[in-house]
C-alpha cells in the first residue's frame, strides 16, 4: 500500500478523533439513567468482561458512569468554551479596533487577569454564584478567553494594516463590508482553532473544580464527582474506581488537544505543509 502523506493522514486522524468524541457524547446522552441504577448484587467488582471498568460500592457499572461523566464534561466544556470564545472575540476586536486608549486599557485588564491563578478565580466566581452548574459554567467561561483574545487582537491589527484593506477603503467600501470580506475570512480559522483548544482547558477545570466540591452538585454523574468518591476507596484496594475514569478523562483531553492542532495544520496555507 502506498504510504499516506501527512495531509491525508492528518485529515483521517482528525475525522477519527471527532468520531470518538461524538460517540462518547451521544453514547452518554442515549444511555438510560437506569443503566447506572444501584445494583447491590454487583457491588465493588473489579474489571471483568461484563463490567470492563468494574463496578462501584453501589454496584453501578463504572464504564457507563465514565461515559456519562465524559459526556457531561463535553457538554459543559462546549458551552463554557463557546461563551469564552465569544468573550475573546468581543474583547480582542474591541482592543484592535479601538486602538489607542481602549487598546491600552484592554491590554492592562488582560495582564491583570492573567496574573490571577485561574483555579482560584473560578472557585471565587463559582462560590459567589452559589456553586452549582451555572456558577461553575460561568466561572470557567469568564476565565478562559484571555489567550484567545490576545491572538484575535494581534491578528486583527495585522490585517488592518494590510495594503488590500487600504485599497478597499479607497474604493469607498464601508467598515462592515471590509470586515466581512477581508477580516473575517482571516479570523475565522484562528477563532475556530482557538475554540477547540479552549475545550480541554475548560473540561479540566470543570472536573478539577467538581472534584474539589465547588463545581457540579454530587447528584450529577460528573467525572469530578466520580473521582472524588473513588478517592475514599483507593486505600481499600479498589483502584479501578479512580484509574479508569481518570485515564479516560486524560485521554479525552489529549484527543481534543490533538484535534485542535490537526485542524490548525489543515487550515494552514498549503505551501507550509510537507
Amino acid at each position: 500500500m502506498k504510504k499516506l502523506n501527512r495531509r491525508t493522514a492528518a485529515a483521517i486522524i482528525a475525522a477519527a478523533i471527532l468520531a470518538v468524541i461524538l460517540a462518547i457524547y451521544i453514547g452518554g446522552a442515549l444511555l438510560p439513567a437506569a443503566a447506572i441504577d444501584a445494583d447491590f448484587s454487583q457491588k465493588g467488582l473489579p474489571p471483568s468482561p461484563g463490567h470492563i471498568f468494574g463496578t462501584d460500592f453501589l454496584g453501578r457499572d463504572m464504564f457507563v458512569r465514565t461515559i456519562k461523566g465524559l459526556s457531561l464534561s463535553l457538554t459543559v466544556g462546549a458551552v463554557a468554551s463557546a461563551i469564552s470564545a465569544v468573550i475573546a472575540l468581543a474583547v480582542g476586536l474591541t482592543a484592535a479596533l479601538g486602538r489607542g486608549i481602549v487598546d491600552h486599557a484592554v491590554n492592562w485588564f488582560i495582564d491583570v487577569f492573567m496574573s490571577v491563578p485561574h483555579t482560584v478565580l473560578i472557585i471565587l466566581i463559582s462560590v459567589a454564584l452559589s456553586r452549582g452548574a451555572a456558577g461553575m459554567l460561568i466561572g470557567v467561561a469568564v476565565t478562559h478567553w484571555v489567550s484567545l483574545a490576545r491572538i484575535i487582537r494581534g491578528e486583527v491589527l495585522q490585517i488592518r494594516s494590510a495594503q488590500y484593506i487600504a485599497a478597499a477603503r479607497g474604493f469607498g467600501k464601508s467598515r462592515l463590508w471590509i470586515a466581512r470580506r477581508h477580516v473575517l475570512p482571516h479570523l475565522l480559522p484562528q477563532f475556530f482553532v482557538g475554540l477547540i483548544l479552549l475545550f480541554p482547558h475548560a473540561i479540566m477545570h470543570e472536573s478539577g473544580l467538581t472534584f474539589l466540591g465547588f463545581g457540579l452538585p454530587p447528584e450529577r454523574p460528573a467525572i469530578g464527582i466520580i473521582l472524588a468518591e473513588s478517592m475514599r476507596y483507593i486505600s481499600s484496594g479498589a483502584i479501578w474506581l479512580a484509574i479508569f475514569p481518570g485515564v479516560s478523562l486524560v485521554i479525552l483531553v489529549l484527543l481534543i488537544d490533538k484535534l485542535g492542532s490537526l485542524v490548525r495544520y489543515l487550515l494552514e496555507p498549503r505551501e507550509a505543509q510537507m
Binding site: 488590500y164 485599497a167 479607497g170 474604493f171 469607498g172 477581508h182 475570512p185
Partner: peptide
C-alpha cells in the same frame, strides 16, 4: 469618504490583494 478619484497602485502587488480570495 467614498470612492477615491485618485487611485494608488502599489509596489508589491502580492501585498495589495487578499491572499485568501
Amino acid at each position: 469618504k467614498g470612492f477615491r478619484p485618485v487611485q494608488l497602485i502599489y509596489q508589491h502587488p502580492e501585498k495589495a490583494v487578499n491572499p485568501r480570495l
